[in-house]
Design a protein around this nucleic acid. Structure first.
Lengths: 341, 341
DNA sequence: CTGTTAGCGCCTTCAG
DNA sequence: CTGAAGGCGCTAACAG
């Protein structure tokens, strides 16, 4: 009882060869009922569990996929990871998960580790990288089915699943414009992040299209920075009458900043945010958002990956799929001020 | 170029044996600088990556730990998973993650799969089970270092990390009592969940200790059920003047129910919730909560696991560690109504 | 229908 | 300091 049982232990106890045990466990055809019984009895008695590591090595299939996300405490990423995990479970695949903290080097190292573990495929929310600069362009990733989620890796042949960032941002901004706002400020994180860049662009296009002047504030992800930016904006002589926030983090930070000033949109200033969040409709008033289909995103990415994995390896060029977003109108944009009774 | 390079390919190209390659890659002492160079050159040329599966099989160490959580879209669980993952990264371990959806059978199957993959340790937030009934009590888990998080597995020898559920709940309830409330209702999920049972008990003790009559509503995790319960409570002749909600999901659902009725605590009714959440202080007024140290919980559990893994296997009885919670007073309990100016 | 042989890719052990 | 042999636990391919 010094160590865990091996297949040979089972075989010996059942009085058969390891091949017979293997066949019984893998439900391969053609083993006498009698022997099957003996094998099962021995398995039970020894609490035998097959060693999947050995099996994977032998079969050259790990039955694992890898997931790489920046953070797990961002609800958007967590939901993606959850739904990917659900699909993997359906396929009887294990999931190896890691977090990059948005650091390209960490991402590279962790993804490399997954490769060495022979994952059969990879879903990555790539960290920030200059175009053509991603460490994921290294040659060892060429032969691996990879789907990037939320952001592309420029210059790669990876499948890629995005949302309508630019279009959604335009939609949200135009909604504010349609309500008569002229001075609409944009608040987001660094444009080096693909999603931020696209959303910024959508905002600008909407503004320019309406003959208005865009004005963007770029924050770090620290709360304090957002607070400073909000204070400055609100103390302008010509202060904005509306804000467009580029993701759920920014939205929350900006709301904190406004709260500090005793301002609650749409009073004094209207607000629309990109990316829905759990309590957006519990705030008073509710926050109008451009909603991304997070759960569907994860599920779709996983399905794309399993499809790719089942193909006869001809990666040619990666597919690019863009999922639609939707405007969810709540109170913060001012649209519900006159309630129909 | 038909397949990925093996160590023997590197050896051949470098004109050495596989052992020399192995030694160079593992920085074992005693290889000529000249040969080292040759090996590195060959590695580079072939884009050679060692096969960790084979290494694990050979070394009987997978360098993997497993994490099992109910859901990843619950922020509490997601934060735990994130901090566990961070610690694992520090130790150069990979993380295999799965979700049980609170289903004991899924939990058992997924954890078993992890065992077969030879994870070296396991952190589990156990799904609901009657005492002594958990499938994790099966004999194959006896020899595996396991830390359970947030909830214990009764009758197991697993290490266990909890928070002061009962005490925290008592604290929150007593806070409401201290503000003069007599009719304080409890709203939580099924008492079959360990945390719920403990929090319910803490509430009851606080009530009985103050000579008050407890009144509990038990909801399912569906929003609709909570809405019904809230409506019923608020239509009572002797309706409660305060509510204690047992977790962040319940709190949010109850707030939705109250919002539907146009009620915003502490007006009409005061409210305290167990478990903090992202926007609790953005609501108007902010929600008073009993805060659990989610990030610390994950980190501590991971440290406990790595400690256990490094020990010379004498599991004796599992350790049980209980982390403190803290009351965060915001507006919803009514304590801030008279602001000192 | 069952068993034997061989090898997945790597590293420990022991020779040279 | 380097190499050859052997085996981690399993299964494909080929006997019998």
């Amino acid at each position: 009882m010094a160590r865990t049982a091996r297949m040979s232990d089972v075989a010996r106890l059942a009085g058969v060869s390891t091949m017979t045990v293997s066949r019984v466990l893998n439900r391969s055809a053609g083993v006498t009922a009698k022997l099957q019984q003996k094998v099962f009895a021995a398995v039970e008695q020894l609490h035998y569990q097959p060693n999947d590591l050995a099996r994977s090595l032998r079969e050259q299939r790990s039955h694992e996929i890898g997931i790489m996300v920046p953070y797990l405490f961002d609800p958007f990423f967590a939901i993606c990871a959850h739904s990917i995990s659900a699909v993997a479970k359906q396929h009887s695949y294990s999931v190896v998960l890691s977090t990059s903290d948005e650091d390209p080097k960490t991402e590279y190292e962790e993804v490399s580790r997954m490769l060495r573990r022979n994952v059969e495929g990879l879903i990555v929310i790539p960290s920030h990288a200059q175009a053509g600069d991603s460490l994921l362009l290294a040659p060892q990733f060429d032969r691996m089915p990879i789907v990037t989620l939320d952001r592309p890796v420029e210059g790669s042949g990876f499948d890629c699943l995005l949302v309508e960032n630019e279009q959604g941002s335009k939609l949200g901004t135009e909604h504010l414009i349609s309500m008569g706002h002229k001075r609409i400020a944009y608040i987001g994180l660094s444009d080096e992040l693909y999603t931020m860049c696209m959303r910024h662009r959508g905002y600008e296009n909407a503004m320019l299209g309406a003959g208005l002047r865009p004005a963007a504030s770029i924050c770090t992800s620290a709360l304090e920075d957002a607070l400073v930016k909000v204070r400055r904006l609100m103390s302008l002589k010509q202060r904005p009458t509306a804000l467009f926030c580029a993701n759920n983090l920014t939205t929350r930070h900006v709301l904190h900043g406004l709260q500090e000033l005793g301002i609650y949109p749409p009073e004094t200033i209207a607000l629309v945010g990109f990316d829905d969040f759990e309590t957006a409709d519990l705030l008073r008033p509710g926050i109008t958002v451009v909603r991304q289909p997070s759960e569907l995103l994860g599920r779709t990415a996983a399905n794309m990956l399993f499809k790719r994995m089942s193909e006869s390896r001809k990666p040619t060029a990666g597919k690019r799929i863009v999922l639609p977003v939707e405007l969810v109108v709540r109170g913060s944009c001012g649209a519900l001020r006159r309630k129909p009774s």
